[in-house]
Design a binder for these strands. Structure first.
Length: 556
RNA sequence: UGGGGGAUCGUCUAGAGGUAGGACGCCAGGUUCUGGCCCUGGUAGCGGGGGUUCGAAUCCUCCUCCCCCAGCCA
């Protein structure tokens, strides 16, 4: 089952050990999102781990919504999360659950703890409770209500459920240890009163369980063996274990791993929400967002994200992965699969003086040199073409292989042309280039001469207009989370728009289709704004650009 | 001056007493009708001090630095 050649990680090791010792007969995991926001690339690594471990050991992974706080959660988020998990390539089968499915059971168990003298109803206000909790270095003080009788607690708790008390006036707390060095053990709240209707249970409940009280028990009910979560819950494990022990029910094992940060972005759902609400981005699915919805719209493939998760691995040390790592995974995936096309982002007119006016010929172009089965297509060629501004320089710098006066270049899949002159406007800007072509140099001819440069082009008459959205990182700082104000390091140039042309084969492109625009980058048809009459492409990631590096090295 | 974790190339990650390896990045070269892909080579690391040992990234010890926790959020 496990690939022996592949390095393991501490979680896999732990699972293998648990199976070997018989602590658990099999493996059941769970991915437990709270439906209060969109899933992001950080969640993706958790999803890959949860579903991946289950699959690797022949078990299954549950999708469980941690819907214990109705004031923050919505059905829209639930729907989006399911869509994103599926898109990533995972299937929970019949194992779709909600913490809210267990509210009745959780209530019964709370009663059981009260009867055992391990839980009590507290009347302290939130402020008083904070005050009693002590500090990191000083122990807390016990609540005056801590010694209520079992009967009184039972009566009060039933009346809490019945709605007799207002929000915030009472809580149910576990009776553990107010002097514990672990603050989570200083009589944690199990239930709070929230007279808010819940997206699934409606107004059935006005008391809602806290995360700690719901999570472990939900795991137990579902027979989860390995409850994998992030490091900030490490301090909660003693409480997780305490509840399970106190109840005497099936005891899953919680294992914590480090969440990761991606450079030039941030994952806090709260901050992402702020970006959406403040209009810094156009929504949760803005292609600059690290959300799965944003990455999908940007042009990322699920496979590239899974590969990325795999490479980043699972460990306990905090890490900030360079964005380049993610981009590499995308390029590698798309290089194998994306169809090649030609597009001109910043158009410059080329007139081929010795090519017959009114003539058009169809030239054969390879769809994907990495995949012969992708076949070929025909692209029209004519006297007037568009090329990219970057591919012409009146005064070429050293090592510039592209077009300039007197120089020859290959037009991809077409002819070799030579620049014979330029046309300028009154201000001296180059507005068109004049060339001659060599009729014997047609693309595909084996006897072809070699020239230093090859550039891409689109026939002006047949070209389709298109908008290109060129993205840069949303933040200028490598670690925006470290900034005092993350809004201050938002990149003002994270989106640049260009109007250009694409070859006519795009007449019937579908939303989310991804292509490689030769020599430029990988682009995706925008799922929101693109239409047959107005094509819009998002740049997922540029091609590696060694010329840009050379050029950068030349300028001071 | 509480509790819980963590530290290996610039970044991520292997290594469980026996030559510190891989990936990304970067540099150099080869190939090329994409300055892409691919191929070759190079660069660069065990936080620090003691100790055990023939031998330590690994075991012991002291120290340093970093992260998390004081919601009726998850």
């Amino acid at each position: 089952m496990t690939d022996p050649g592949k390095p393991s990680h501490f979680i896999r090791d732990a699972v293998v050990e648990d199976l070997r010792t018989g602590r658990f007969p099999g493996v059941v995991t769970r991915f437990p999102p709270e439906p209060n926001g969109y899933l992001h690339i950080g969640h993706a690594t958790a999803i890959c781990l949860d579903f991946g471990m289950a699959a690797e050991f022949g078990g299954h992974c549950n999708l469980r919504f941690d819907d214990t706080n109705p004031v923050k959660e919505t059905q829209e988020y639930v729907d989006q999360i399911m869509r994103d998990v599926r898109w990533l390539g995972f299937d929970w089968g019949d194992h779709l659950y909600h913490a809210s499915d267990y509210f009745e059971q959780l209530y019964d168990w709370a009663v059981q703890l009260i009867k055992a003298g391990k839980a009590y109803v507290d009347d302290l206000t939130a402020e008083q409770m904070a005050e009693h909790r002590g500090t990191l270095t000083a122990p807390g003080r016990e609540s005056p209500y801590r010694t209520r009788s079992v009967d009184e607690n039972l009566d009060l708790f039933a009346r809490m459920r019945a709605g007799e008390f207002e929000d915030g006036t009472k809580t149910l707390r576990a009776k553990i240890d107010m002097a514990s060095g672990n603050i989570n053990l200083r009589d944690p709240v199990m239930y709070r009163i929230r007279k808010t209707s819940h997206q699934r249970t409606g107004d059935t409940w006005c008391i809602y369980p806290m995360y700690d009280w719901a999570h472990g028990q939900s795991d137990s009910i579902e027979g989860v063996t390995h409850s994998l979560c992030t490091l900030e819950y490490e301090d909660h494990r003693p409480l997780y274990d305490w509840y399970l022990e106190a109840l005497g029910i099936f005891h899953p094992r919680q294992i914590e791993f480090a969440r990761f940060n991606l450079s030039h972005t941030m994952m806090s759902k709260r901050k992402l929400l702020t970006l959406v609400e403040d209009g810094v981005v156009t929504g949760w699915d803005d292609p600059r967002m690290p959300t799965l919805a944003g990455l999908r719209r940007r042009g990322y493939t699920p496979g590239s994200i899974r590969d990325f998760a795999d490479r980043v691995g699972s460990a306990k040390a905090p890490k900030t992965v360079e964005l380049g790592h993610l981009e590499h995974c995308l390029r590698e995936d798309l290089n194998k699969r994306a169809l090649r096309r030609m597009a001109v982002l910043r158009p410059l007119k080329v007139v081929i003086e010795n090519y017959p006016e009114g003539q058009t010929e169809e030239l054969e172009a390879v769809n994907n040199p990495e995949d012969a089965s992708a076949g070929t297509r025909e692209v029209p060629f004519s006297r007037e073409l568009w090329i990219d501004e970057d591919d012409f320089k009146e005064v070429p710098p050293p090592k510039y292989f592209r077009l300039s006066p007197g120089v020859e270049v290959r037009l991809r899949y077409a002819y070799i042309v030579k620049c014979t002159g330029v046309e300028k406007d009154a201000a001296g800007n180059v507005v068109a280039i004049r060339c001659t072509y060599d009729p014997d140099s047609r693309g595909g001819d084996a006897r072809g001469r070699k020239v230093k440069g090859t550039i891409h082009w689109v026939s002006a008459r047949e070209a389709l207009p298109a908008e290109f959205r060129l993205y840069d990182t949303l933040f200028t700082a490598p670690k925006p989370d470290d900034a005092e104000d993350f809004k201050a390091v938002v990149n003002p140039n994270s989106l640049e728009t260009a109007q250009g042309w694409v070859e006519p084969s795009f007449r019937d492109a579908d939303a989310d289709d991804r292509f490689q625009f030769e020599r430029v980058g990988y682009f995706c048809v925008d799922s929101r704004d693109s239409s047959p009459s107005r094509l819009v492409f998002n740049r997922a990631v540029g091609l590696r650009d060694t010329w840009a590096k050379i050029e950068k090295g030349m300028s001071p």
